[in-house]
C-alpha cells in the first residue's frame, strides 16, 4: 500500500498555506493529522498532486478559555483533548469521545480540525460539536469567518469549507452551571466507527427545568445530524422519564441509518434511542455532581 507520487509543501505560515492552496487549486490537499487522508492515498482512492502540510504552521494548536468561550486550535491533537485538564473540568464529553476515537497512536497524530473538515458522518466529533453548539472558524483568502456547526456539514463528505479555507479554530460557549455532557457509541470493537453514537449536553436550571440541550448523532445519517426534535422535547420542561423517552423516540425516528455490517437500520435506530436515554442520564448525573 503505497501512495501515488505528489509534490510536498510545508508552509511556515497560514498566509503561505492559503496562497499555496489557491495556487494549486483542486489538485491540492491539506495534510493535518493525515490519518484519514494517508490511508486513502495508500489505497489510491485519493491521488492529490500537491500535499500542503500545515503541521509546521505555528499557533494552530491550543485549548484555552477566552471571555466565556472555549477555543480549540484546528491542529490540536486528539491526545491533547483527551488529557486536557480544562476540558476534563468543563467538558467531560471530550474524555468520553477521544477515548473512543481509533487508538492512542492515531490520537497522537489525528487532529480535531481534520476530524471535522473530513466531513465524515462516521467521525465522532461532528456529533459532539452539535451537542456543544460549536462554531467553526475557517481562515481563507478573505480572512477569518465563523460558521455555525449547523451550517458546516453539507452532504456526503462535504462541508462549508471552500477551497483555500483552512479550519483554524473551534469555538464553544462555556457551559453555565448545572450543565453536564456525555458521549458514547456502540462499536463492534474498540476503535471502530460507530454502529451509532450519541452526544448530549444538557443544562438544568435551579427549578429543575431543562434550560438548554444539545444532542448530536454519529453515523446514522448521510451527514452528521442534530436531533433537533429531541432537544425541543426536553427544553423548558422538567426532566422526567417521559420527556427522556420522548427525546429518545424522536432521535430514533429522525435519523436515517443504513443497514450494513454493523447492523440493520432498525437496530441502529434502537441503539440511538437507548444511547440518547443513557447519555441524558449520564450528562444529568455529571451536571448534578459538578
Amino acid at each position: 500500500m503505497i501512495p501515488q507520487s505528489f509534490q510536498y509543501e510545508s508552509p511556515g505560515s497560514l498566509a503561505e498555506a492559503i496562497s499555496m492552496l489557491q495556487q494549486y487549486g483542486e489538485d491540492a490537499k491539506i495534510l493535518s493529522g493525515g490519518h484519514s487522508l494517508i490511508p486513502m492515498m495508500k489505497l489510491r482512492f485519493a491521488t492529490p498532486e500537491y500535499l500542503i502540510d500545515i503541521n509546521n504552521i505555528p499557533g494552530l494548536s491550543y485549548i484555552r478559555e477566552e471571555n466565556g468561550v472555549l477555543k480549540i486550535g484546528g491542529l490540536t491533537r486528539e491526545a491533547e483533548l483527551e488529557h486536557s485538564d480544562l476540558l476534563k473540568q468543563h467538558f467531560p464529553i471530550f474524555a468520553d469521545v477521544t477515548k473512543l476515537i481509533a487508538d492512542p497512536q492515531v490520537r497522537n497524530m489525528g487532529t480535531i480540525g481534520g476530524n471535522l473538515a473530513h466531513g465524515d458522518a462516521a467521525n465522532d466529533h461532528p456529533a459532539v460539536m452539535m451537542a456543544l453548539h460549536a462554531t467553526v472558524v475557517a481562515t481563507g483568502p478573505e480572512g477569518e469567518r465563523e460558521i455555525p456547526i449547523d451550517e458546516f456539514f453539507y452532504g456526503f463528505y462535504m462541508t462549508a469549507l471552500q477551497h483555500g479555507d483552512i479550519l483554524t479554530e473551534i469555538r464553544i460557549p462555556m457551559p453555565p452551571p448545572g450543565t453536564g455532557s456525555a458521549y458514547h457509541k456502540m462499536e463492534r470493537k474498540v476503535g471502530d466507527y460507530a454502529t451509532a453514537g450519541v452526544a448530549v449536553q444538557i443544562t438544568i436550571g435551579d427549578n429543575g427545568v431543562v434550560t438548554a440541550a444539545g444532542i448530536g448523532l454519529t453515523n446514522v445519517n448521510p451527514v452528521p445530524l442534530r436531533a433537533a426534535r429531541s432537544e425541543q422535547a426536553l427544553i423548558g420542561k422538567p426532566l422526567t422519564e417521559e420527556t427522556i423517552n420522548e427525546a429518545a423516540l424522536y432521535a430514533s425516528e429522525d435519523c436515517n441509518p443504513s443497514s450494513d455490517l454493523r447492523g440493520s437500520e432498525e437496530y441502529k435506530r434502537s441503539i440511538v434511542a437507548t444511547l440518547v436515554k443513557r447519555m441524558i442520564h449520564q450528562a444529568v448525573n455529571r451536571a448534578n455532581n459538578s
Binding site: M1, G34, H35, I38, P39, K42, L43, A79, A102, D103, P104, Q105, V106, N108, M109, G191
Partner: peptide, 22 residues
C-alpha cells in the same frame, strides 16, 4: 494497510505513532 495493527509503532518526539501512516 489501515493503521489498525500497530506493528509499525515508533516514538516520534516521544509520542507513539504508527509509522505506516506518516
Amino acid at each position: 494497510d489501515t493503521s489498525s495493527c500497530g506493528a509499525c509503532t515508533i516514538l516520534l518526539d516521544g509520542k507513539s505513532i504508527k509509522s505506516c501512516t506518516v
